[in-house]
């Protein structure tokens, strides 16, 4: 079946937000202080909200009667189109904040560009979410700086976190045929063109955080086409099992 690039664009945006939101919600009650607990929950709530918008939009575009919940709870691993970065486990606080910073910095640039696309359905959600995402990028950068330039222990944890997560960054900017069609259709953004601005933003934080930018690694990719790490299956099993156990139920 040929995929609709407009619907798929909404799906990819929704899946990123949903999976990262789900990951952040795992922190609830387990953060280093209560204040940080509340911060992480706020990030999670913003992302789950974005997921509801984009998945709802994807369902509307598809027009087959699937709503945001159906798309979130009744698709399998192979149907999920999120990038690999967001499904990586929380690990320690350094890993969570590194993942957040790498993603939110990208998401900010993406939404800034998307707020100007022709299709108002995409432009409006991007514009609204942008305010949230700017805060996410700033808060996570604040943390990267404090952990990078904190103690020897925190610095090392940041080096370890980056050492692993860096390999998932290139996937964020990859353009496939579907992405190009989405640009043509006035809903998508040329993600590859965002990379220089991304590098500039990231490098500035590296410097302030006294962290060395990792060497480029062999890129791991596949998320946009349903090929994920093993982690996603477990995340989905947890997230989906209640609605799937009661397929006829309304909640």
């Amino acid at each position: 079946m040929r995929q609709d690039p407009i619907m798929q664009s909404a799906l990819r945006l929704g899946d990123d937000a949903l999976i990262l939101g789900q990951r952040l919600s795992e922190w609830c009650g387990h953060a280093p202080t209560i204040e940080v607990d509340l911060s992480l929950a706020n990030l999670g709530l913003d992302l789950i909200g974005q997921a509801m918008h984009f998945l709802g939009l994807a369902g509307d575009i598809e027009g087959q009667g699937r709503d945001a919940d159906t798309l979130a709870f009744f698709r399998t691993d192979l149907d999920f189109t999120n990038c690999l970065l967001v499904e990586q486990p929380n690990g320690d606080f350094a890993q969570t904040m590194t993942r957040q910073w790498l993603y939110s910095t990208y998401q900010q640039l993406l939404f800034e560009a998307m707020a100007g696309v022709e299709d108002a359905r995409f432009a409006e959600v991007a514009d609204k979410a942008l305010k949230e995402v700017r805060y996410h990028a700033e808060l996570s950068a604040d943390w990267v700086i404090r952990l990078g330039d904190g103690t020897d222990v925190s610095h090392q944890k940041m080096v370890d976190a980056l050492g692993w997560l860096w390999r998932f960054v290139p996937e964020l900017f990859q353009m496939d045929e579907l992405d190009s069609l989405a640009v043509e259709a006035g809903v998508g953004v040329d993600k590859a063109a965002l990379r220089p601005a991304y590098d500039a933003a990231i490098n500035a934080v590296f410097e302030e955080a006294k962290l060395t930018r990792p060497d480029d690694q062999r890129t791991l990719t596949g998320g946009r086409h349903g090929h994920h790490s093993e982690h996603l299956g477990h995340l989905l099993a947890t997230m989906q099992h209640i609605p799937r156990s009661h397929p006829d139920a309304r909640w």
């Binding site: 204040e35 940080v36 509340l38 911060s39 706020n42 805060y135 808060l139 604040d142 404090r146």
Partner: peptide, 20 residues
Amino acid sequence: SVHAPDGEMAVNHARDVYTR
């Protein structure tokens, strides 16, 4: 009130705690 390591973080924490 909030607990925070520095002023900038205190503003972030205050935002996340008191303006939800």
